[in-house]
Computed example of a mutant assay.
Amino acid sequence: MSDLRAELTQSVDEAEWEWLIPHVQRDAVILVTPGLSLVDVGEAIASDNSQSVQQWIDEQLITKPSVDQVGEWNGDRQKRFHTLILQPFVLVQEIAA
């Protein structure tokens, strides 16, 4: 495992929606679809693998949260997410209830 991958793997954490609101307000949250690894996405972004990142964007596997999603999450401030901070972004993935 590469040093970057090991570092990213250790950096994956959990956060409540309430904690993510300031990052959404500064347009820094990237939503990663379940089934896609936060570490894979983080590694691709950090290593400037634009081909993989663009493919995920095109396939809508990584997106900005929609207004509807934000509204839904605002109704459940205890909603939890897997997170990976990759300055200036915060990668998030919903944790199934």
Rank of each mutant, 00 (worst) to 15 (best):
A44T: 02
A6R: 10
G35R: 01
A15K: 02
P65C: 02
S52H: 10
V90D: 04
D27R: 12
I85K: 11
A97T: 07
T83K: 06
E43Y: 09
Q78F: 06
V53T: 06
V32M: 03
V92T: 11
K79S: 08
V41D: 09
Q55Y: 10
Q93K: 03
Q93D: 01
V67N: 13
I57A: 00
E72C: 09
S52R: 13
S11Q: 12
L36N: 01
W19N: 09
V39G: 13
W17F: 05
L8S: 04
L4H: 03
V12K: 03
L91W: 05
G42E: 12
P34M: 08
Q60E: 11
E14N: 08
P22R: 01
I30V: 15
T33R: 14
I30P: 01
E59W: 05
L61H: 11
L8D: 05
Q60R: 15
D3K: 06
R80P: 00
I21N: 02
A96V: 12
Q54I: 07
V29M: 06
P65Y: 10
V39K: 03
D13L: 11
L4F: 02
M1F: 07
N74H: 06
Q51K: 14
V92E: 02
D3F: 06
V29R: 03
E43Q: 13
S50Q: 13
A96C: 07
A97C: 09
A97I: 05
I95N: 01
S2P: 14
D40P: 07
L8M: 05
E7G: 05
I85F: 12
N49E: 15
Q55I: 12
E18Y: 02
R5G: 04
L86T: 10
E72D: 10
V12R: 02
T83P: 06
I85W: 07
V32I: 04
L91K: 02
V29G: 03
T9Q: 15
W17Q: 01
N74R: 04
S2L: 09
W73P: 05
L38V: 09
L20G: 01
M1L: 08
T9L: 15
V53S: 03
L38T: 03
T63S: 06
Q10D: 12
S52K: 12
W17T: 01
S37N: 11
D27G: 10
A46K: 00
V32N: 02
